[in-house]
Design a protein around this nucleic acid. Structure first.
Lengths: 204, 204
DNA sequence: CGAATTCCTGACCTTTCGGTCAGTATTACA
DNA sequence: TGTAATACTGACCGAAAGGTCAGGAATTCG
């Protein structure tokens, strides 16, 4: 941490203005509001308050913006699974709960990027590659569920694959309504998802 | 049932070819594969095997195709709630389970239309109107959950609004992977969702 | 046969798309 | 002051978008 990590002004040389990171952030927000394909570079320019051509000073292409956002989401989600897999101390059930909690944390902390990822349809090479990486993540999650079932911790009258789909379908559905300034933080959401999915809604 | 209900050839007058219903079905399938905005009328023409202008013989606009699909989903989902609300015999809990089961049935029976609906972002008047109708449905579902909690059937340490989001987030996530010729039918899916959401994953 | 009906083609229109480029404006530093 | 560095404008480009239209092709009915 020798370099500045806090929001230091970081005195740059030439004419002040936007930096790449800000353009990327605003772009992804707009993509999530309107959809990637429905958002033109003209729309983004209007959102940023300058002309379309100025965007290309900061960023090489629309596709590049998409790729950066998708990679942010995928890198962080992969890291959650790396951590869960590395932790060989606890049970598979505990590692699964850790993966759920971690996924929700990433979803909240990187909400725009994860939202973007979950809406990708596979148009173009960038989206295809993102889908490939996402499929790997989904498979690893399914393996965790499978291990927890084999361990005897989870019900075994449902296909582990199906359980995994339902569980992480619930997790991923958070992007549809969670807002950064909303009522719930990552911990509350993780607790709620765990309560519903693991213990059930019915009062005992 | 005096009129033909089965796949009767239905002898039409002029030159044979596509009918509106088929064009609509293929269009919605393509919209779901590529995304509505990323699908051009040229793409759809290629998919159908004729030229772009031929589409406009069957259908007035791209927007019209979208609206038809969204209405199909919304009408059927609304009907599920109408039935649940009309049934004043059972408990709120039973009506909620009925709503979950009915929603999943509609989701499976009208998978393309429901998928289309769940991806709408609100671009243009047609999408805005669909979002309005969908919000009403979501509110009615939340009221059902609220009633079941008030009744004492469901856990009361979570906000009913939050419960509703998680429960139907799980239901709606089915469109991401369920396929018409897949491993599970509507009944199996409804049973699985109910098992996970109401009774929980943990083995007892 | 001819007429009515339905389906589809191909050329064309306007608008918008992602992107390029030459030049200008605004700043920090020497 | 001047020079290097960075940020932006505005005119423009080829391609693709949604949509129109006049006419031709295939069928049923009388």
């Amino acid at each position: 941490m020798t370099t500045d990590s806090a929001p230091a002004p970081a005195p740059r040389r030439g004419r002040p203005g936007y930096d790449q990171a800000t353009v990327l952030r605003r772009a992804i927000d707009l993509f999530n509001r309107q959809g990637y394909d429905a958002t033109s570079m003209g729309d983004l320019a209007a959102e940023l308050g300058f002309t379309k051509s100025a965007i290309y000073h900061h960023v090489p292409s629309k596709t590049h913006l998409l790729k950066e956002g998708l990679d942010e989401a995928l890198d962080n989600l992969s890291a959650v699974l790396d951590r869960a897999d590395a932790d060989r101390s606890g049970s598979a059930y505990e590692r699964l709960r850790e993966a759920v909690r971690g996924s929700i944390e990433v979803l909240v902390d990187h909400l725009p990027a994860v939202t973007l990822l979950l809406r990708v349809r596979g148009n173009g090479e960038v989206e295809q590659e993102a889908l490939r990486r996402r499929r790997i993540i989904d498979d690893r999650l399914a393996e965790l569920v499978q291990a927890a079932v084999a361990e005897g911790a989870l019900i075994d009258d449902l296909d582990p694959y199906l359980i995994s789909r339902l569980l992480f379908g619930m997790v991923n559905s958070l992007v549809e309504w969670v807002r950064p300034d909303g009522r719930y933080d990552a911990r509350q959401l993780a607790d709620a998802v765990a309560a519903v999915a693991f213990d059930g809604l019915v009062r005992r």
